[in-house]
């Protein structure tokens, strides 16, 4: 199952030049860029592992690509995303994020329904390989 989190999941996977172009867009906006990875893509998994700190004050995408490639080499079969942080007052949050690597086999989520009061159903999502 293709997990559709992130900004460009409905497009074919981005190639190196496309990723670089998005990084350049982030740098033009003065956003810091982080590389994060996980083997647990549950939609409520907020904290993926950080591959180092977000990168501040870069001028060129090559620096981000160097870290991304190092992360890919160390973790070839997990999800990796790039994530851009904006420190502008009133935002101070992520401004874009997109997946740049997926595992060969993506998991799917099973729904467990627990019937409670009335017709209410409590639902739990569980990851399955």
């Amino acid at each position: 199952m293709r997990i559709t989190q992130g900004c460009f999941s409905f497009l074919p996977d981005l190639d190196e030049e496309q990723i670089k172009a998005q990084v350049e867009y982030c740098l033009r906006n003065d956003w810091a860029i982080g590389v994060e990875f996980t083997d647990d893509p549950h939609p409520r998994n907020t904290y993926w592992e950080m591959w180092g700190h977000p990168m501040f004050d870069l001028k060129d995408a090559a620096g981000v690509m160097m870290e991304l490639n190092a992360c890919r080499k160390a973790h070839p079969d997990v999800y990796i995303k790039l994530i851009a942080f904006d420190s502008t007052r009133g935002f101070e949050t992520v401004r874009t994020s997109f997946i740049v690597q997926r595992p060969k086999v993506e998991p799917h989520f099973a729904m467990t329904r627990t019937e409670v009061r009335g017709r209410t159903v409590n639902i739990t999502l569980t990851e399955r390989a």
Partner: peptide, 14 residues
């Protein structure tokens, strides 16, 4: 290593 890489990343493109 992280310090040197940090500097190199900032210098890239220049």
């Amino acid at each position: 290593a992280p310090k040197t890489r940090e500097v190199l990343k900032k210098a890239m493109g220049g």
